Amino acid sequence: MTVDEPGTGGARPGWPQSTEADDLDRAFGPGTESVAVRTPRQRLGRGALIAIGVVVTAGVIAVVLVTIIGSVQNGVGGVFPRPQAALDRFGSVAGEVDGVQRVRDDEPTKTSFASYDVQSTVAVAPTLSDAERTAVVDALSDAADDASGNGVRVFAVADLGVLEVGVSADGEATGKRLALARQLDAIGGVTGVRCSWGDDAPSDEAAAQTITVETHGTGNALGAIMAKATQEAHAVFPGATLESAAPAS
């Protein structure tokens, strides 16, 4: 029986020993010293780099989220609502209409996550004829229609002097308000009419209309004026609210 001598690694005496590294030597080296051991400074540096990377990544994510939320709030391109852009567009067109003296914008009203109502007050020269006033109101309604969209509804109140008329993208509803304001202004004792909508929100719904009749009348005279005004108003806008007010001056 042959016994391997110490240090021969199992090779038989007199047999040539292979000088090629075996699989373990090739993978890990002939000794443990071939595996690199990181120093404390190296480990600290690597940890610092990882921490910095996490902070930078978190910062980028935060910026992206803020940008997305801001885009939804303020509007991006032609997808999300852009209330101020709609106001600017309406004001630009309305300001060029013959007879318009000035346009004043109100603050946009957010009605849901991605929709707004915007409203302007348009001062019109009080010296215009009825036909010219009609043309102005029609032009303002067209401008509101063009500026509305992408979650934004555009409204306006046309100040025609003794008459104030709500203007929307619905030309038919706008025309009815103007005609009714003229009709009520013809009632004896009436000095002015505002025909638009309530304080809750602009609307073309019949029951959402609010008509304010200005008059010096009191007592029975006021009652008679309001009864006639209510009858005529409800014939056009069923369920509308009628109010009376003393003239401002």
Rank of each mutant, 00 (worst) to 15 (best):
S71E: 09
R89Y: 02
I69F: 12
D98T: 06
G75K: 06
N74M: 09
I69N: 02
V60K: 04
R104H: 08
V63L: 15
S92W: 01
G95A: 02
E96Q: 12
A62E: 09
F80L: 14
V97W: 06
N74E: 08
T57C: 15
A62D: 04
I52E: 11
D105H: 08
L49S: 15
T39Y: 06
I69V: 14
Q84D: 06
V63M: 11
G70T: 07
I69H: 00
P83A: 03
G45I: 05
R102A: 12
V55E: 10
D88L: 05
D105V: 02
V72Q: 07
V54D: 10
I68N: 07
A48M: 13
V93G: 00
V97T: 07
A58F: 08
I69G: 07
D88I: 04
G70E: 08
G59N: 11
T67S: 11
V79D: 10
R104W: 02
V37L: 12
G59M: 12
A51Y: 14
F80I: 04
I61W: 03
P81W: 05
V76M: 15
V55G: 04
V97Y: 02
A86S: 13
A94W: 01
G91R: 00
R38P: 15
R102V: 04
G45S: 11
V66Y: 05
V100S: 02
R38D: 13
P40W: 07
A58G: 10
I61Q: 06
V66H: 01
R82T: 06
P40Y: 09
T111G: 03
A58S: 08
P40H: 10
V100P: 00
E107R: 12
E107K: 12
V55W: 13
R41Q: 13
L87H: 00
D98C: 02
D106I: 01
V76Q: 13
V64H: 07
P83Y: 06
T67K: 08
S71Q: 08
I69C: 02
I50K: 15
S71R: 09
D98L: 05
I69S: 09
A62H: 05
V54P: 14
Q73G: 03
R43M: 12
Q84C: 00
G78T: 09
I69D: 08
T109V: 14
Q101C: 00
G78E: 14
R82F: 04
L87A: 00
P81K: 07
L49Y: 11
T39A: 12
D105K: 00
V103R: 09
P81H: 06
V54R: 10
T111N: 03
G70P: 03
G99S: 10
A58N: 01
A48V: 10
L87D: 02
S71A: 14
I52T: 14
T39I: 03
E96F: 02
T39L: 07
L87G: 00
G45P: 05
G78R: 13
Q84M: 01
A51V: 12
V37G: 04
P108A: 03
L65N: 02
P40I: 03
T39F: 07
V76H: 14
D88V: 03
D98S: 12
S71W: 12
V37N: 10
A51T: 11
A94Q: 02
R38F: 11
I69L: 12
A62S: 15
A48P: 11
D105M: 05
V56M: 14
R46I: 08
S71F: 08
A48W: 15
G75R: 09
R38V: 05
T67M: 10
G91Q: 01
P40L: 09
V63C: 11
T39C: 04
E96Y: 02
F80R: 05
G77M: 08
G77K: 04
